[in-house]
Design a protein around this nucleic acid. Structure first.
Lengths: 233, 233
DNA sequence: GTGACATATAAGTCTGACTTTTTGTTCCCG
DNA sequence: CGGGAACAAAAAGTCAGACTTATATGTCAC
């Protein structure tokens, strides 16, 4: 959960990034480096570095004699952790949350299947430990504790899949789960059925039953999608 | 296929990026901005901008009094199009290609299912057109033409899914398919079975048969995985 | 050995001057 | 009146140098 606000240029990004991803500057809008530098009270060099980073996220394009133009939303690198965080913090949070949950529903079952084949003994142990932790915190309003184990569980699955692209989505899943607990108010204890599914999933991975692991994960992510439909129709 | 080498700082990235992703500088290696600036014969400001970009890709971390340290591979933002391109061009291309193909096999079936539900009439028409183009170029060593239609086909599917995260993977799929045609030598015409599957998939989407669309796409991606197993065991 | 303090180092920041590319305008000629 | 060439302006791009700040590390007293 690195805030990344280190340095002046980081501070500028922390303001400009959310503004752009929130749509404050519609696609095609033109900004000028000098003007921005004045507005944020930083030197041109610092502002240039910030623009370079925004450019590498495909949020803007810098062209001579024109300025820094905001790119259309479809071109943004929506897999950039920073961009994801900015958008989750902004107005279209619900929309973003749905996109990410659908992504999860595609990735995690396949990842679980692979994990069943490739997980090391240590990872299996970790998984079981997480599942136990979830059971232990599933009742009595221990939502924070439950969240920690839930996140850890999914991280292990993704990592154990052995696919680096899957593993890198650990942060995304963490963000989604954390958002569900913190933002979208969650008064009640987690669904007991979901807890059971996680325990069974740990079991399936331990036994190397890829097909069952995949099926169970599909049930878990289907539940997450359903939950989302209830909250935001 | 934007080379992105615009500007001095872009040229530096074009050299440093591949070097880092190729593992020329093992994790923990320390670089100094000044030294790099001298080595590439650019000013410090230009080099600083390049470092900022590398930092935003999580390839390096810049700390005072220490220097620019290379981060461990597990932290790299492997979804950054630039990073993907660099790695595909480097030594661990086979490994990277496998990761991406597995990712495809997870995403595309779900995307196809969603596309069957949400595709517009126009998108359905485009899809059919692409499929026809694939059929037309499937024989007689017209690999280039086939590739164009194949890429377009998958792009439409991903876009029609209505999920922006899926849509953004169009470039990745394009890179993978293009790599298969160009790099890994492909003398023979494409597998007729694959062509048929694409035609049927266009059909299923047009008819709104989500389940069939998903199943057919699973067959397609399974084929891609199998093909990979044959080439790189 | 442990803590406080000094020092060296490399990134970070700012400024001002200059270069280069690109756009839009003007003006001349067909 | 239209089209093309020359021109001017605007904004990013580049560079060099001086200065600031954080911090790792070494030193010394205790």
């Amino acid at each position: 959960m690195t805030t990344g606000g280190r340095g002046l240029h980081g501070h500028v990004l922390e303001t400009l990034g959310p503004a752009i991803t929130a749509g404050d500057y519609p696609p095609g809008s033109v900004l000028r480096t000098d003007e921005l530098a004045q507005r944020f009270e930083v030197s041109r060099s610092v502002m240039r570095e910030a623009v370079r980073v925004l450019e590498s996220m495909y949020l803007v394009e810098s062209r001579r004699r024109v300025g820094v133009t905001v790119r259309p939303k479809a071109e943004w690198n929506v897999y950039d952790p920073q961009v994801i965080r900015w958008r989750l913090a902004g107005a279209d949070r619900p929309h973003q949350l749905r996109s990410l949950t659908v992504l999860r529903s595609a990735i995690e079952p396949v990842a679980a299947g692979l994990a069943a084949r490739h997980a090391t003994a240590e990872q299996c142990a970790e998984l079981t430990e997480c599942a136990l932790g979830m059971v232990a915190t599933s009742r009595g309003h221990q939502l924070e504790g439950y969240l920690v184990h839930d996140v850890a569980f999914h991280r292990v699955i993704l990592k154990a899949s052995g696919n680096e692209m899957f593993a890198r989505l650990g942060d995304v899943v963490a963000e989604v789960l954390s958002g569900r607990t913190h933002h979208d108010v969650m008064f009640e204890d987690p669904d007991p059925a979901a807890v059971t599914l996680h325990v069974q999933l740990a079991e399936a991975v331990r036994e190397g039953d890829a097909e069952r692991a995949e099926r169970l994960t599909r049930e878990i992510t289907a539940g997450a999608l359903q939950e989302l439909d209830v909250l935001a129709p």
